[in-house]
Design a protein around this nucleic acid. Sequence first.
DNA 1: TCTTAAAGGAGAATTATTCTCTAAAAGCAG
DNA 2: CTGCTTTTAGAGAATAATTCTCCTTTAAGA
Lengths: 137, 137
Amino acid sequence: MDNEIIKNKLTGKGLKVTPQRMFVLEAIYALDNHPTAENIIDYTRNVYPHIAIGTVYKVLNKLVENDLIKKVKTENDVMRYDANPERHHHLYDKESEAIQDYYDEELDALLKKYFKRKNITGFTIEEIVVQINGKFN
Amino acid sequence: MDNEIIKNKLTGKGLKVTPQRMFVLEAIYALDNHPTAENIIDYTRNVYPHIAIGTVYKVLNKLVENDLIKKVKTENDVMRYDANPERHHHLYDKESEAIQDYYDEELDALLKKYFKRKNITGFTIEEIVVQINGKFN
DNA sequence: TCTTAAAGGAGAATTATTCTCTAAAAGCAG
DNA sequence: CTGCTTTTAGAGAATAATTCTCCTTTAAGA
């Protein structure tokens, strides 16, 4: 992805632009499928060898806070990061640990309609996330 | 829950019956809403003060392996345990961290039918879990 | 009762993530 | 462009949930 675009994503959120932030954000886009912090650190160090681990975590948290990326939790206890901050579902393969984003407006509409009709008492729904577990083949 | 019933759950899975396993399983049933390992340790120590932390974790993992309970992952990185090993969905309140099981056969049927029609290529669905985020009130 | 494999105890080890404290640098005003 | 202020980065220690190790104890079938 172009540097200017990445820069604009940061400035667009009122975040200071630093090389570290640029490289981390670029890494997440380049490592297409939901990298771990470790993946991001390794990738980033190819182009910026001295970046500190703590810095990467700080940058990642800042990006999540500002909705530039998302945090994804998997079965084992390692966070994964999702380049896409939009609402979406996940296809998840427990064996290979592969994650793929899954968008589907029709599904969202269906669920919304369904829960509107059901009207769960004592609970106000804010968001519905569907995790589709299975196997990639 | 009656001791005999708990004992039968263990023997039914071919697991050895030990006081530690009995007390841990009882704790999960008593602490009704998705306790953490720490909750379980505290509760268990009221009746069995010397149980080791490592033992509780070992018992919990054994129970999960044998489908007597389920592991649930939340936003922060603490595991929660679910007394109910059946397939079900969750209502989750991020603020209070409260979790409530949500069963709905109609929803399951709806989703099954929907994904059968959609037929995602390159992926074989095994299970669909819906996480309903929002607020209890 | 004896035997053996499985389970428990205690505490060290692991490991992802956060924290702390100081030095550096981004971004704005002049 | 220069200096000022606040945010950010670096380095490594700290944290905390969970697992591991090693040895002892116990469950349960013969």
